[in-house]
Write a protein that binds this DNA or RNA. Structure first.
Length: 528
RNA sequence: GGCCCGUUGGUCAAGAGGUUAAGACAUCGCCCUUUCACGGCGAAAACAGGAGUUCGAUUCUCCUACGGGUCACCA
């Protein structure tokens, strides 16, 4: 497959001598056939071309990821280009969110607005002067035309068609006489430039994921290339820039599948080489009624920032979405660092069918990443919550032991150990536990003994506490659980706690533990 | 509605004509155990339906059903 991709690459835009040398070199040595990141082959170029409209949807992020992985797995370059041709949807600061997200996710671009590169500028609004001449060239060659139809006329067309949802442009201006056009232009009548799509025949293109796709040309609309405000549409700017920037592999969501033939017509009109296409399956969300639809806000957090705010680690998010629509060959491993993803990635692993975003699985990935952390990074992530709860740094070792296997997100921490700060109000029924055979009576008896036992222990550490408590159980002729249960309930006031009684004793310290035991005893004495 | 794409357990998915149809998440059970986790072991759970090609289809072809995408002076 790699060789196949390679064979289809062209270098018309990379006429740079150095690149040609590398190209020839790589052909003769066949090094490009090895998809390793350090292969000397700078031919593959992918781009992430987001529109700065606010936040980074996980679908967009996954597209960026695959673009990055595809490029890096073949020793190529990953380019960031900002597509800000929609002046109405522009959101201030959105570009910064894009930079931050890519950085945070570990997708480092080789060229982009912030770092420059040989094919800049990388912001479409700064490339404005480029597009119109290309469009006018097409007009001169009879492959595009000026259209003076107003938005109102188009809207009327839509309404009167009976099927407002599916009404296309009626090609009203397609055959305007050149005098007419010249007059209108001279009078500064607002206009757009439209592509002249063929009326019959078929257009076929090849996609690396979906295979060969053929569409009847009569389905293709005379799409707008240059808008009335002078800005190019995405449809146009995208092919001009991809060509000018030497993009070899166009990776995007499958929602672009149906407009791809129109892009190919444009490439052909200019005589440019058509890039390789890699269309990605959609990411869907599960609705409350059990159906699925394109992932959106009502399914929960879908922006990268939102997920991070909800406690998901960037590495876990990346790892999870990498596997949403792609799967490595010949192995069942699921935990991948970004470097490992680069090693394992290949286009053949991309699936065609849409995937449903599953927060349960994301939780598992997040928990796996937490369990895999060393003490220091765990501490770094956990320390804001420790501070919030007012627990001392000295306890971080025991907290690590107790928390690491039990949290799926760091934001779970306060909920798990809030008892350390404040003893919750609890019902005395908590002392009753069938499996441990604990009852109100046994609890009272055990706590009385524990109260004096614990005040005698000066070595307040895990080994001592555990052995003294076990010894007590033994001398009482009961199971450990009968001692541990009331102790844990008394000092935590919580049915389920991370770690056992001993860990709770360590977290609370001797004085606080004894205080809570005394309190429990007095409450138990009040019962009858 | 036209066009395009898709359909393997609840979810992600492997499988590429002959398999006891992998693995993971979730679910359930057992073990471990100081509650809960972690860990270990195990269970349940799938080729949308119908034709055709073939000695043999989950796998190839067609039809149907269902799902999705698209049909903007959005990207």
């Amino acid at each position: 497959m790699n060789s196949f991709i390679f064979r289809r690459q062209r270098f018309s835009c990379l006429s740079n001598a150095l690149l040609m040398v590398i190209y020839v070199l790589s052909i003769t040595t066949k090094r490009c056939f090895m998809p390793t990141s350090n292969t000397v082959c700078s031919s593959v170029r992918t781009r992430f071309a987001p529109s700065p409209t606010g936040f980074m949807h996980v679908g967009n992020l996954r597209t960026a990821l695959y673009e990055y992985l595809l490029a890096k797995s073949m020793g190529g370059s990953f380019i960031l280009r900002i597509e800000d041709t929609d002046r109405e949807r522009l959101v201030e600061g959105a570009t910064d969110i894009i930079y931050q997200t890519l950085k945070c996710a570990g997708l480092i671009h080789d060229e982009g607005p912030d770092i420059g590169g040989p094919f800049g500028p990388y912001v479409q609004s700064e490339r404005m002067h480029l597009y119109r001449p290309f469009a006018e060239q097409l007009v001169r060659e009879g492959k595009a035309y000026y259209c003076f139809c107003t938005k109102e006329r188009l809207e009327g067309l839509r309404q009167s068609s009976g099927t407002p949802e599916s009404a296309g442009y009626d090609r009203h201006c397609r055959e305007l006489s050149s005098e007419d056009v010249a007059d209108k232009l001279a009078m500064n009548v607002p206009h757009v430039i439209r592509q002249k799509a063929p009326l019959e025949g078929f257009t076929t293109f090849f996609d690396h994921v979906y295979g060969e796709i053929t569409v009847p040309n009569k389905e293709l609309e005379d799409q707008i290339l240059i808008k009335a405000d002078g800005f190019p549409t995405y449809n146009f700017a995208n092919i001009v820039d991809d060509h000018l920037m030497g993009i070899t592999h166009v990776v995007r969501g499958s929602e672009y599948l149906s407009s791809t033939p129109k892009y190919n017509l444009l490439y052909q009109a200019f005589g440019w080489d058509i890039p390789e296409y890699v269309h990605l399956p959609l990411i869907q969300g599960k609705n409350s009624d059990g159906t699925v639809s394109k992932l959106s806000k009502r399914h929960g957090a879908t922006g990268f920032e939102d997920l991070v705010d909800n406690g998901y680690l960037p590495e876990a998010i990346i790892n999870y979405i990498a596997l949403l629509g792609w799967c490595p060959k010949d192995e069942t491993r699921e935990i991948f660092s970004i470097e490992e993803l680069i090693q394992a990635f290949s286009i053949e692993g991309i699936s065609k069918s849409p995937a449903t975003f599953d927060y349960d699985k994301l939780d598992w990935f997040n928990a796996e990443y937490i369990r895999g952390m060393d003490a220091q990074s765990f501490y770094n992530h956990a320390t804001p919550y420790y501070k919030q709860l007012g627990v001392s740094d000295e306890l971080s070792a025991i907290l690590l032991e107790v928390l690491q296997p039990r949290i799926t997100k760091f934001i779970d921490i306060p909920g798990k150990i809030s008892y350390v700060k404040n003893l919750p109000e609890y019902e005395l029924e908590l002392f009753e536990h069938k499996k441990s055979k604990s009852t109100i009576e046994t609890s009272k008896a055990m706590l009385e003994k524990l109260s004096s036992l614990l005040s005698d222990i000066s070595d307040w550490n895990k080994d001592t506490l555990l052995s003294r408590l076990s010894a007590m159980a033994e001398s009482e002729g009961v199971k450990n659980a009968l001692v541990m249960w009331p102790l844990r309930i008394a000092i935590t006031g919580t049915l389920v706690t991370p770690g056992g009684a001993v860990e709770a004793l360590l977290l609370l310290g001797r004085d606080e533990s004894l205080k809570r035991i005394v309190l429990a005893l007095s409450r138990l004495s009040d019962i009858k």
